[in-house]
Design a protein around this nucleic acid. Structure first.
Lengths: 155, 155
DNA sequence: CCTTGACCTCAAGTTAGGTTTAGAAATTAC
DNA sequence: GTAATTTCTAAACCTAACTTGAGGTCAAGG
């Protein structure tokens, strides 16, 4: 093999645990941009392991691929990202993470007020006005509404 | 309207913010079981607003509909759930929530170790062995692997 | 009675995030 | 040099969680 000519998609798949097909899909979504060797095969930077790991972590936390693409825009295009580059993008990332944790903590602290008391009257509830769009998967519910029914008698 | 004969699907939709079609879908998935009036239209308990709100909250946190169906099994079938009923099911729910918060907090505290340092070597990372299956949407990534490449020179 | 809006069923379409398949070309291993 | 892997593309398929549409019914007001 030619020295330092990049790594194959299979190598990245082995190192990250991702399926080869998933990595190709991420390329199609603009999350990673390999070049091609003479034979037309994809070649990646070895450092793209980090990039893929970042994608996997962000997904676990609940971010969509377009959102993650946004995070990764902050990385330099032409060269291997440095520790400083990663530190920079992890900052904005951390803010989102903080928000997400706070939302869940509020929900937990209000759990009795929301659910345990049986009223589920959600103006009290942390999720009444969910700001945390990262938590939404797909075409999920739009918003939550309270239950302050007029008479509230059993049917 | 006949007194105390239940509420319509449209009423529930208005009160919860869910689409009518979503409520019908939840019925198909066994999350809610209305009865029918003489004309064949669905009738719900007024208290089903709570049930639907619970579904929406649990979804926000990341539970799938089958999982939520499991939570709701703990509710009584024949009568309107009491505050105590809700308190009971919110307990198991809270455990899941606690776990989820802890996972995210560990990730945050390790964020510099995982991402900020640029090594992304995930044995240190809270998400290296993700136990939090509720966080996984769809056929997501299977596991995370570190980046301790042999030579680690730029390509 | 008539109209209007809410409701019904059932099938098909949608989006996200991928996987699978098929047939061909490139690379690696012996 | 040949065989065994990998990789390539493109299109089809998959699941979850819904939405949309067609064609028809029910209920309330005037």
């Amino acid at each position: 093999m030619a020295a330092s000519s990049g790594v194959s998609i299979g190598y990245l798949a082995d190192r990250t645990g991702l399926a080869v097909s998933a990595i190709r899909y991420y390329e199609a979504q603009g999350l990673i941009t390999p070049w091609r060797n003479n034979g037309g095969q994809r070649r990646f930077f070895r450092a793209d392991i980090r990039r893929l790991s970042f994608i996997m972590i962000a997904q676990q936390i609940g971010f969509s691929l377009p959102e993650i693409r946004g995070f990764l825009k902050a990385l330099p295009g032409g060269r291997t990202p440095t520790p400083e580059d990663w530190a920079k993008i992890s900052e904005g990332f951390r803010d989102h993470l903080d928000q997400r944790i706070e939302t869940l903590q509020q929900l937990r602290s209000n759990l009795d007020g929301c659910i345990g008391c049986g009223c589920l009257s959600l103006p009290k509830c942390a999720l009444y006005n969910p700001k945390d769009r990262a938590a939404q998967n797909g075409q999920g519910p739009r918003y939550l509404m309270g239950d302050h029914a007029e008479t509230e008698n059993n049917p």
